[in-house]
Amino acid sequence: MRTISRQINKLFLIVFLTITSMAVGQASLTKTDVSIYPKPEKGYKQMIIEVPHSDNDSNKKIEFVIGKWMEVDTCNKHGLIGSIEKKDLEGWGYSYYDFKTDGGVISTRMACFESSKVKKFVSSQPTTVRYNGKLPIVIYVPEGYEVQFKIFKAEDDVYRASEVKQK
């Protein structure tokens, strides 16, 4: 009787943990409610950058690029043609970004003697914004595009510029 009770307890625990892990896995990965932001236009998706809050938020910047994985040659540099517009979220004092592109790509035009291709993330010009661990950075991009970002941190060293004496 004891073994049956233990087996039932084990089975109950397994079922409970499975259901709990499924619920957690389906939960939103965002820590901020983004329902106040507009829904994406047809053919667009909403991307969110959330960074952890720190005591040194003012010493950091976020640089993000929007791009797409493409097969390109290995000897030229490639860039995505597009424009990003910063928009205000009316009534909230927050902002978000809207990226528009027709998918055009610019490239250097060097003759490639090797005709090898490689899959590469072809991106737009970078956008640098304030680091804020309390608010998300919301970006609307066309379907099929991604957002990648870097965090830049200022060192504690402060330098002084030299004055050029005029004669």
Rank of each mutant, 00 (worst) to 15 (best):
S28C: 01
N56Q: 14
I84K: 10
S58P: 11
T74E: 15
E85P: 03
Q26K: 07
G91H: 14
G104Q: 14
I66Y: 10
S115L: 14
Y94N: 05
G67I: 07
E146R: 10
A161I: 07
F121W: 03
A27T: 00
V51F: 00
E143K: 10
K86Q: 15
S123A: 06
V105S: 06
Y94W: 14
A154K: 15
A27D: 00
S28T: 01
K119E: 11
N76C: 13
A111Q: 15
E41M: 05
G104W: 14
F16A: 08
V147I: 02
P136A: 02
R130T: 03
R109M: 15
W69T: 06
K117G: 08
E85W: 09
T20A: 11
A111V: 15
V34D: 00
P38S: 09
P126A: 07
V164D: 06
I62W: 02
K87P: 03
G144V: 14
I106W: 08
Y140K: 05
P126C: 04
G103A: 13
V158H: 08
V122A: 02
E90C: 03
D88F: 11
S83G: 09
K167P: 05
E71D: 12
K39I: 01
F152C: 01
S54T: 12
T74Y: 08
P40E: 08
K120M: 14
V147N: 01
R130Y: 11
T127R: 06
M70H: 04
P126H: 06
E114Q: 10
Y140D: 00
T18M: 15
T3M: 09
M1L: 13
L11M: 12
C75K: 10
E114I: 11
S5G: 06
I137Q: 01
Q125G: 05
K39H: 01
S28M: 00
L29R: 00
L29E: 00
V34W: 00
A111G: 12
N59C: 12
T108S: 15
K42Q: 13
K60Y: 08
E163N: 07
D98W: 12
T20G: 04
E41G: 01
G144C: 14
M47L: 04
G91K: 14
E85R: 10
N132F: 01
S124L: 03
I36D: 02
W92R: 01
L11Q: 05
M1N: 09
S83H: 10
K60W: 13
V24W: 12
G104N: 14
N59T: 10
D73C: 09
Y37E: 00
A27S: 04
Y131E: 01
R109F: 13
M110D: 12
V118H: 05
A161K: 06
I139V: 03
E143V: 09
E71Q: 12
L13Q: 08
L80V: 10
K167C: 06
T127C: 03
R160N: 07
